[in-house]
Amino acid sequence: MSEMHATAAIAPDATATTRTKATTAVEMVGVNKWYGEFHVLRDINLKVLTGERIVVCGPSGSGKSTMIRCINRLEEHQKGQIIVEGTELTNDLKRIDEIRREVGMVFQHFNLFPHLTILQNLTLAPIWVRKMPKKKAEEVAMHYLKRVKIPEQANKFPGQLSGGQQQRVAIARALCMNPRIMLFDEPTSALDPEMIKEVLDVMVGLAEEGMTMICVTHEMGFARQVADRVIFMDAGQIIEQNEPHEFFTNPQHERTKLFLSQILK
C-alpha cells in the first residue's frame, strides 16, 4: 500500500506537508461490525497518519462512537482489519493491552474514578501499567494538571469538580500515559455551554503540538480550526470525507448536505 494515501493528499495545510516521513497511526481496512443482527459498521476504510487530526461527525446512531471504540477494542469488530501503530487488533489480550497503552481516550461522560482523588486518577495507570515510581508519576500528573490549568484541584475528588474541570482531568489522565493517539468521543456534549470552551482550548492546544487525534464532535468551529480532515458518517458507513473548508462549503453527498444544513442552521 502506498504511503501517499489518497486521503492524506487532500490535506494541504502546512503541518501535513512538512511532515517528512508520514507514518500510519491507525488503519482500518474493510471493517464490519454487527450487534446481533444489526449491521452497525459497514465496510469502514480509514487511514490516519501520525499527527493527523480527524473530526468525525454524523447523525445520532450513525456508528461514530462504535467506530472509534473499535480502535482501542472497547468494541470488537467481526470482519476486516484494524491496525494501530503497526499492531493488528486480534483477540490476543496482550496485544489489546499494548494498544490501549498507546491510545488515550476521552469520553462524553468523563468516566473518572469517583473513589480516587484527581491526583490518584492521574497516577493510577502510569504506576500500575507503566510501572512508573509513584514520585515520578505524581510529577508527570502535576505537569499535565498544570497544562489543563487545574493543578489546585489535585487533592479533590471528581464529584467536587465542575463538568468542564472533570473533562479536563479526563484529558490529563489520558495524557499521563503518554499516548501516541488520542480518541475523543463527544467530549463537550455533556457540558454546559460556558464550559465547552475551556475543554476545546485544551484540545486545540494538543492539536497544535502535533498529537494524532480522532475526535467525534459536532463542534464545527473546532473542526474548521484544527481538523486536517472531516469525516461524515451515516448508517454505519463513511459517506464523505474532505478537508474542512471544502467539506463545509462544498459538500457532495445529499446526506452530507442535509446533515450540514441541519447542524449549521
Binding site: R100, F113, A125, V129
Partner: peptide
C-alpha cells in the same frame, strides 16, 4: 463507564 475508563487507560 468505569469499566471502560479503566480499560482505556490500559488496565488489564
Amino acid at each position: 463507564g468505569q469499566y471502560e475508563g479503566a480499560k482505556a487507560v490500559g488496565l488489564s
